[in-house]
Design a protein around this nucleic acid. Structure first.
Length: 574
RNA sequence: GCCUCUGUAGCUCAGUGGACAGAGCACCGGUCUUCUAAACCGUUGGUCGCAGGUUCGAGUCCUGCCAGGGGCGCCA
């Protein structure tokens, strides 16, 4: 289906050009002024502020608007185009056209509003990317939900999408995890060993150790920590994948940072940066202050390998290879993104927490130092997530302490267990990534009308209920004549047509949360109509009933599409 | 100190430089013998943190200030 505002924009541009050619308007480059839906229904369905042309055309906005309208060709979907002060051009969509959209929506089904903006293009979304040293936490969950929704939106926009999970199993944390499991294993065997305080204390390692005993007995007593690290890692990944699958998230590719070392890619990248003149050896960076230099001297550092990132706007240069010969985190990160770009993605979205802000900047500088264009890379930064609950005494929300104690909300599994997969997905998505998210545990747990999740799903459920009842009564919509639809139903179709724009805007601006808000708005349009526009009611004439049944089929298609875009289920019953 | 995000109704939050700033929750009052009342109808609620500036037009852009979150290591 076409995006009506885009069609109207094109028609307006043609009209302006026509007016310029006839001399009614002076010649100027036509700026892109977006057509949008006005707030009030009385102002039509699509609106164009011609005031934006006043300066260029050196005429009164109202006159300009009238000139443009006078030069417009007829549009198949518009019944009325009016000019309103101070210079708006308002377009009303024809009822006849709206009625046609009912069948058009049903025909498109689950591909409703699939756009062609990504046609023939490939996109990648990298998200979650938690190292396999523990379960998926609440913080990871936000990235998971936002990333997967972004992937679904890119698919809806026509892109071929790959979901990637980048991880590092070679760091000190993983060593600690392996050793933690080793000690837990020995404890299971009855050995008197203590777990150091900075080791992984989680109960899941006790369970893992018990399983190892059940499987291998005491045969691993003298096995190396590497053996345990491998066991812990595979167990963690199983857990992580299971947790993500519980909210309908599945990655296509798992990319191990270690492979960048094995293939030598990180050194190739460093060589290229050096050839391009952005690398130098020194004990301290070139712009270091006196106190920094003396600090470094005091520590007795040997020369390290520095990236002159300040050439690209960084505030200080960054170490690529430490004086002990080991790369910092930054070098493989640059190599990874370089590899990503070489794999030919037109868009590479990366969902990160804001704690990675500086790191992501340096990676972009690194990409430019390689002589590559970082433009396809776009990072969505999520602000922090807190689980909060209402404190009655103090009359305010307060953070839930995230501990391992039962009853606290620490992991994705906990959240799902306390609420539902759908609730987790909706609440994590329905917030701008720029704002800190307070996950109100009490509200999400409530399965009541306070919870927008059910409000939206109930719209689909109500449609499904009608279809069930109709089938039982042997009633169908064959031969339905949509002229029997009323204002209410058309109002819904009008709103539903905005979905295409919502998808487009969400993709262009990398703002998947917009879909969540739209879903709620659409449900708010639906429910009152459901109450008024009954289908299987003794007083509803049969022609009207058929038309309405057809209408609810379209509504169900729209809600199903929306719920799936958010990764939520579309239940037939609740 | 520098960077960055946030500040909008009692609470949680939307809001492409456009028209009279919106939802949900909470509060108050109504609505089920007819497809799910997890719904609907009605009422209440605002100095868009503060001060300037740009603009025909600013919650939105710019500058400064105030308050809060996060980030700034030869850590991973």
């Amino acid at each position: 289906m076409k995006l009506l505002n885009r069609v109207l924009e094109a028609a307006l541009e043609d009209a302006i050009q026509a007016a310029q050619e006839s001399g009614e308007l002076p010649s100027f480059a036509i700026p892109r002024i977006p057509v949008s839906a006005p707030k009030r229904a009385s102002q039509g369905d699509l609106s164009y502020p011609a005031m934006g042309l006043a300066k260029l055309a050196r005429k009164r906005p109202l006159d300009i608007a009238n000139l443009i309208v006078g030069n417009m060709q007829e549009l198949d979907f518009a019944c009325e185009i009016k000019v309103a002060p101070p210079g708006f051009i308002n377009c009303t969509i024809a009822d006849e056209f709206l009625k046609q959209q009912v069948d058009a929506m049903i025909d498109e089904g689950d591909a409703l509003f699939r756009l062609d903006m990504g046609c023939g293009k490939r996109a990648q979304v990298e998200f979650v990317s938690a190292n396999p040293s523990g379960p998926i936490t609440i913080g990871h969950t936000r990235g998971a939900v936002v990333g997967d929704a972004m992937a679904r939106l890119l698919e809806a926009a026509g892109y071929e999408v790959q979901r990637e999970y980048y991880y590092n199993n070679a760091g000190a944390q993983m060593v600690k995890l392996g050793k933690s499991l080793m000690l837990r294993y020995r404890q299971q065997l009855g050995d008197d060993v203590q777990l150091p305080a900075d080791y992984y204390q989680g109960e899941y390692l006790i369970d893992a150790a018990a399983d190892l005993v059940a499987e291998h007995g005491d045969s691993l007593r003298s096995a190396s920590w590497e053996r345990f690290k491998g066991a812990a890692e595979s167990r963690m990944f199983d857990w992580i994948k299971r947790s993500l699958a519980s909210i309908d998230i599945k990655h296509d590719a798992f990319y191990n940072e270690t492979s960048l070392f094995d293939s030598g890619k990180i050194w190739d990248v460093l060589d290229t940066m050096r050839e391009n003149g952005h690398i130098y050896q020194a004990t301290h960076w070139e712009g270091a202050r006196e106190d920094e230099i003396s600090d470094v001297t005091a520590k007795g550092y040997q020369p390290a390998t520095w990236f002159r990132s300040t050439s690209f706007g960084d505030e200080k240069d960054r170490v690529m290879v430490k004086s002990d010969g080991k790369p910092t985190y930054t070098l493989p990160d640059i190599a990874y993104h370089c590899d990503k770009l070489k794999r030919g993605f037109d868009i590479a979205v990366n969902v990160l927490g804001t704690d990675h802000f500086s790191q992501a900047q340096v990676v972009k500088y690194g990409i430019r130092a390689l002589g590559m264009d970082p433009d396809p890379i776009h990072v969505i930064f999520n602000q922090m997530v807190r689980a909060v609950r209402w404190n009655e005494e103090r009359g305010e929300h307060e953070a839930v302490k995230q501990s391992k104690r039962a009853g606290d909300f620490d992991t994705l599994d906990d959240l799902v267990a306390m609420t539902s997969a759908d609730a987790v997905r909706y609440h994590m998505l329905a917030r701008s990534p720029n704002s800190q998210l307070d996950f109100d545990v009490d509200q999400v747990v409530k399965q009541s009308n306070e919870n927008p999740v059910y409000y939206i799903q109930n719209a689909y459920v109500r449609c499904a209920g009608i279809f069930r009842e109709a089938e039982e009564r042997g009633f169908d919509d064959a031969g339905a004549d949509l002229k029997h639809l009323g204002e209410d139903e058309l109002k819904f179709i009008r709103k539903a047509l905005e979905l295409g724009n919502v998808i487009e805007q969400a993709v262009i601006n990398y703002e998947p949360h917009k879909v969540a808000f739209f879903a709620h708005e659409l449900a708010a349009v639906f429910h009152p109509i459901y109450d008024r526009a009954r289908v299987l009611h003794s007083e509803v004439p049969i022609d009207t009933a058929k038309a309405r049944l057809r209408f609810y089929r379209a509504a169900a298609v729209v809600f199903r599409r929306l719920l799936r875009l958010m990764g939520m289920s579309a239940p037939e019953r609740m």
